[in-house]
């Protein structure tokens, strides 16, 4: 089963590498002007590069994503086996959602998602 998966990755990887190779081979080879090789900043000379500070919200979103997506992933085994003991598992899920909800409400109240 997983060898088949490997074959799939091999074929898709082949397409990807082929496309990158084609664009390397074809196309004009003349050396571009200096301005062409600069980072685009609306036509004026670039002021420094992009290794600068950016809003912390992106870090926060990434961190929250890891936490909440992991917690979502914990639901999957429960959901697969749900029909075996529905009531028992439902109450369990509710407890879990309650714990998750505390963190969720805390994050919202702290204004993590206020993009202003």
């Amino acid at each position: 089963m997983y060898t088949a998966l490997f074959m799939l990755f091999l074929a898709a990887g082949f397409i990807g590498v082929a496309a990158l190779a084609i664009t390397f081979v074809t196309g004009p080879k003349k050396t571009p002007q200096t301005a062409t090789l600069e980072a685009y900043e609306a036509g004026i000379p670039a002021a420094g590069d992009a290794r600068e500070r950016f809003p912390i919200h992106f870090y926060l979103v990434a961190m929250l994503f890891i936490i909440f997506d992991l917690e979502t992933a914990f639901f999957y085994p429960l959901a697969i086996r749900f029909q075996e003991a529905p009531q028992y598992l439902f109450w369990n899920a509710l407890v879990f959602v309650a714990i998750l909800g505390v963190g969720y409400v805390y994050v919202l109240r702290r204004g993590v998602l206020d993009w202003r």
Partner: peptide, 20 residues
């Protein structure tokens, strides 16, 4: 990798949107 401000901001936005 493009090291351009537009690229960086665009990619940050897109990836934050997609993971959200």
């Amino acid at each position: 990798a493009a090291n351009s401000k537009y690229s960086l901001l665009g990619s940050l936005r897109s990836s934050a949107q997609i993971i959200s």
